[in-house]
């Protein structure tokens, strides 16, 4: 925690920064530079999953991505994570090009990415253990993180005995244990019930504040995207592209205000409705296309 606190102290709170919304490239942070991704199907067809997507994310910034199913969100995250290399364009982190997965970019998956043969403690300590850190150091770090994510007393449990929400806490802690520069999350709370999800949003927000990490969060929930995005990127499908960006005050507000209050405030509700209707119209467009193609065939 001490290192994270130092990093936090060194960088001014994200809210006070005056970053360009897009276009210009930040010196540090993530730089997604006009990437396109085309999947070639076995039958020779081509799916344009992403088309000329550019996005800059400053260090310490928390950005959420929203969009209809199939618009390329996971593809985008997989490229930033280094699991896929784009057909065109490049992703840079602090100036160097991303070529593969690395410890600097931690990933939290939706579900099922914990190691079920390890205990909670061993899962969280996985990264430091792979890096060959001393045992005592790992133990202390894991102990701290168990407290941070509220899992004291579960250290020795096998992860498969935990509820879905607790498993995602482990996944978050496992990611933090490695002290990455960037945390990428692909619908990390997507499999949770509404109440657990809301609690976990609070945890993500708190972790962002305490650690000052750069966070890229993909979600299906408009409310979550607003609550956990200093900037919200709305994507459109066919081909996957960025359609609109919003700069949002809600994460900072969430740091001082109770979540329900933030989510009930009039500007939150207004933005939520605006984004929702935007996504609805996109969905309708898709449905319309499908409908017409069905009729014509």
């Amino acid at each position: 925690m001490t290192m994270a606190a130092a990093a936090r102290a060194a960088t001014p709170p994200p809210a006070e920064r005056d970053e360009p919304i897009s276009g210009e490239q930040p010196m540090s942070g993530i730089e997604i530079d006009s990437i396109s991704m085309e999947f070639t199907l076995p039958d020779g067809g081509v799916v344009r999953a992403l088309s000329d997507v550019s996005l800059g994310i400053a260090t310490g910034e928390m950005v959420s991505v929203l969009g209809p199913s199939g618009c390329g969100k996971t593809t985008l995250l997989n490229i930033v994570g280094g699991f896929l290399s784009p057909t065109r364009g490049a992703v840079r982190l602090n100036g160097h090009t991303v070529k593969g997965p690395a410890a600097e970019r931690g990933v939290v998956f939706q579900q099922g990415a914990l190691f079920e043969w390890l205990t909670v403690e061993q899962n969280i300590g996985f990264g430091p253990r792979m890096a060959g850190r001393p045992k005592a150091e790992i133990r202390d770090k894991v102990h701290d993180l168990l407290g941070t994510v509220g899992l004291q007393g579960f250290a020795e449990k096998p992860v498969y005995q935990l509820s879905g929400g607790m498993q995602q806490r482990v996944a978050l802690a496992r990611c933090l244990a490695n002290d990455p520069d960037v945390i990428l999350m692909d619908e990390p709370l997507g499999a949770l019930d509404a109440l657990t999800r809301e609690k976990m949003q609070g945890l993500v927000l708190r972790l962002w504040k305490e650690t000052g990490k750069t966070i890229l969060l993909i979600t299906h929930s408009v409310e979550e995207a607003l609550y956990l995005g200093q900037r919200l990127i709305v994507m459109a499908p066919r081909p996957g592209r960025i359609m609109k960006e919003f700069r949002l005050p809600f994460p900072e507000r969430g740091l001082t205000m109770p979540p329900r209050e933030v989510k009930a405030s009039s500007d939150f509700v207004a933005t939520r409705e605006e984004v929702l209707s935007m996504i609805w119209s996109m969905e309708e467009e898709i449905m319309g296309e499908n409908g017409s193609s069905e009729v014509s065939s």
Binding site: F83, G106, V107, A113, L114, A131
Partner: peptide, 19 residues
């Protein structure tokens, strides 16, 4: 996703194989 998770936690190929 487990393999991806391990790599992005800094594991080497050998460590992914072993762990």
């Amino acid at each position: 996703s487990k393999v991806h998770a391990a790599y992005s936690l800094g594991a080497s190929k050998l460590q992914v194989l072993r762990h």
